[in-house]
Design a protein around this nucleic acid. Structure first.
Lengths: 243, 243
DNA sequence: TAGTGGTCTAGACCACTAG
DNA sequence: TAGTGGTCTAGACCACTAG
């Protein structure tokens, strides 16, 4: 690290910020001063500042200077997908039904459908070891007549991940997680008793190359197998980057 | 955007990636080629590539070239803090007890304590409108004799956020969220019935300027008021940056 | 050996800030 | 007007890759 000039600058400033010698809102030395202090050219100093900026440590105000960011400490990240986001391994799944149907008002709204449009609804049950039912997944997607979607639905049950990864740069996903009371249908499938709580995870998938929501999934999980491990990430209240 | 050369390059390449014309793993034009295509100097091209890299679109392999990233699509981010991470407003809280105690084995391990070390345990109840009990919070921290920590504990009940923000750059927080059965004590405080489910959020706070866990919080929430809204973020399986 | 990315400099011109 | 950061260039030297 000591070899590369701009990295020396980066770790020096980072250390000052982490130790609290430079506090959120404080102004850094000017680029000219940093050039002297580190015997560096301007572009080298700027490369270091750029790194600090992209890592969320500092931001810059043209004409004024570079400042220490005011980060938020309540943003967390976690990994979730249906197959290894739970605290039990999913060994297999069983397709319960695939139908073409009229959407209810809620689903219709979410998928941005016109009146008369149909959807494909696909229900699957996920099982852990020894055939323990873990979760029920209901997938809703717009039905486009003429397109052989059914096959795709059945396929992506297995192969969704590589497909999603290929389109990752245009995909947006949102999750909403709530704890609700079960209904009878889910109760039966998951072998839960009436009145038991259940974790309901609603997932919407959008594709910026196509308008509207591409897919809506309601994922009902036995709370026993639900867990989230999340870690804080640094994010800033002030927008501003140096490049 | 069209004014700044490197931003033109950035949006051009970003568009190709988002439309799928450039796929994960694909190699970009070489820097020399991009210089020609955009009539730009090398440092300008590199500034653009640097931005694309820091935004998670591309990575570079010295001697070979720049490549489109292979992102993960199952990393989500959400905001959580005790006071507005729930689907109900916390109007006030009541301190139930503050004691200095011998830690149990679990707490002792988490806080990295020696035998004989004591902890401060602080129990609070959080209320929504009309005095609805929403959550019980148990805070465990190492007790350092001679330091007037009790005051701090009582203070940070109110003022934790600004303090945390000040030290944000050295703080690390982790959450673990599970659904469990309530115990009698929590049941009584939250007015839940026996056998009801409860959301248990365990939070550990570390400070890189101090060794070990600084604080451990167990947050027991009435599932009714628990909700998480999370959004996918782009992260890469390949580590590599351009600066 | 030719090509590729990584580091670094000196210098130019610009817009914005603040006294 | 002096200082600050933003954009951009031309050029130098380096290590790594791959034929």
């Amino acid at each position: 690290m000591g070899d590369v000039l701009y990295l020396t600058l980066v770790s020096s400033i980072k250390e000052q910020i982490e130790k609290g010698e430079l506090k959120p809102g404080d102004i850094l030395d000017s680029e000219a001063t940093l050039m002297e202090k580190f015997s560096a050219g301007r572009m080298t100093v700027r490369k270091g500042l750029s790194l600090l900026s992209s890592e969320g440590y500092i931001y810059s105000v043209p004409g004024k200077g570079n400042f220490v960011c005011k980060p938020q400490v309540d943003i967390f990240r976690f990994k979730f997908n249906k197959y290894d986001g739970l605290n039990i391994n999913i060994d297999n799944f069983r397709l319960l039904s695939v139908i073409i149907a009229h959407p209810g008002l809620e689903i219709s709204k979410i998928l941005g459908l016109q009146e008369g449009d149909n959807i494909i609804e696909c229900i699957r049950c996920l099982y852990g070891p020894n055939e323990i039912p873990v979760a029920v997944e209901r997938i809703f997607l717009p039905y486009e007549p003429g397109q052989p979607v059914l096959e795709d639905v059945l396929k992506y049950a297995d192969y969704m991940e590589p497909i999603e990864r290929q389109y990752a740069f245009s995909i947006e996903k949102s999750l909403e997680i709530n704890i609700i009371s079960t209904n009878e249908y889910i109760n039966n499938l998951l072998k839960l008793k009436e009145g038991n709580a259940i974790v309901e995870i609603k997932e919407t998938i959008m594709d910026s190359n196509v308008s509207g929501v591409r897919q809506y999934v309601i994922f009902s999980v036995n709370p026993r197998y639900f867990t989230i491990k999340a870690h804080m990430i640094l994010e800033n209240t002030i927008i501003g980057k140096i490049y």
